[in-house]
Write a protein that binds this DNA or RNA. Structure first.
Lengths: 218, 218
DNA sequence: CTATTTAAGTGAACAGTGTTTACTTTTTGA
DNA sequence: TCAAAAAGTAAACACTGTTCACTTAAATAG
């Protein structure tokens, strides 16, 4: 699909861009956006701070690329689960759980992806044109498709609107993810004397959310 | 309960502290932690930047007080609903909805309360000694109490552990709140041609969460 | 192969930030 | 009244993202 249309100069440029992103990624993964400074980054790759601006027009743009790559990872994993042929209920739960699992593996990435540090600038949202283009939007669409399937199956209540329910479900997934990301010791679980692992908590949460959608058959 | 044990000096000091906090609150509510700089704050109250440090040992400490006051507001509102004598299911939903409603009225406060800007430092969590002392912790305890009540009533499934379920529920409330806070246009709802208000979305979400807990009677 | 244009890279500065230190002024209490 | 404690400040430190004028290297055209 992608032929070698790039000139040597373009390839070189792309390579250096990747080098910068790679160095940025390493710092970002450990210390987050705040810990990643242009000056430190420049030093790491033996460049002057100003040189970075020949490749990225701002720190935000650089960080945005790290975030998009990260969401690509989430999308891939969720997609893989969604395309399985396991029983529907189980598959739904696994989608939810996978999102949370993968997301919490890179806490700084996830936190930064939603907090443009101040509540304002964000990409397009559902309904707007560019939404399906972002990885975030694609992940949401997978979720909605899954719920629509459940409604058709009769597994989920017929009143639920997939688009609405998907947003609600997404918010809940997002919530646990954020909790784990922001409060490292969450969930501090000594529930009923038993110490539950984080994994078990995620599964409980996912189960709870799917239950809210299910039709009562019996 | 609190007699006038304070000397004139102490009262004066407290007054100035409050003055600083009030000035900080105004900027913070509009522009968040990033927009609130010590220098700007000092200028607003005709003080030198260094003077602030006679009253607060860091910007973080100052902001922490704003956050705690904010969570006091949430707690008050949730408590008021929880203490009502309306039917249990309705009351539960209202608690959840109220948390989200009040929280999203001060987006910057809420976002800052959970994002210590970098995922690390947070107050005590459930199980630890100081948890009940924080307003955040108290709000959680109200939630857990409510769920415990539901389990005893038989309204909620008997298997659910209140402590565990409260964390899960809290995470979901937190999720929608964060979504609204971070993505101003969330939920972008043109679900089924109908434009739903944010309020309706919150109620749907709350309903969905309570459903997940309910026992299937019938 | 040379001349010219374009891109890459840089040092220094600008405008900010939170915080500390040494110093002065004011207030307090014996 | 006078020493001690607290309040307040100017100036500096060590950072930050970003821009500008400048030099150096590479690509392109004649």
């Amino acid at each position: 699909m992608t032929a070698t249309v790039s000139s040597p100069a373009e390839r070189r440029r792309h390579k250096i861009r990747a080098r910068i992103l790679s160095a940025a990624e390493q710092v970002f993964a450990r210390e987050g956006a705040a810990g990643l400074s242009i000056r430190r980054l420049a030093e790491n790759i033996d460049y002057s701070p100003a040189a970075i601006y020949k490749y990225f027009k701002s720190k935000d743009e650089l960080v945005d690329e790290l975030k998009e790559t990260f969401f690509e990872l989430i999308l891939e994993n969720v997609h893989r689960i969604a395309d399985r042929s396991t029983p529907f209920a189980e598959r739904s739960r696994d989608c939810v759980a996978t999102y949370i699992r993968i997301a919490t593996e890179k806490p700084h990435h996830y936190a930064a992806a939603f907090a443009g540090e101040s509540p304002e600038g964000e990409g397009p949202v559902d309904g707007e044109p560019g939404f399906g283009a972002t990885k975030k939007g694609q992940a949401f669409n997978v979720l909605r498709g899954m719920i629509a399937e459940g409604v058709e199956n009769g597994v989920f209540r017929s009143e639920v609107d997939p688009s609405l329910a998907a947003k609600s479900l997404w918010a809940s997934m997002h919530g646990l993810t954020m909790m784990i990301v922001h409060i490292p010791s969450f969930p501090a679980l000594k529930a009923n004397q038993k110490t539950l692992s984080r994994e078990n908590f995620i599964l409980f949460h996912a189960d709870q959310l799917i239950r809210g959608l299910e039709a009562h058959h019996g």
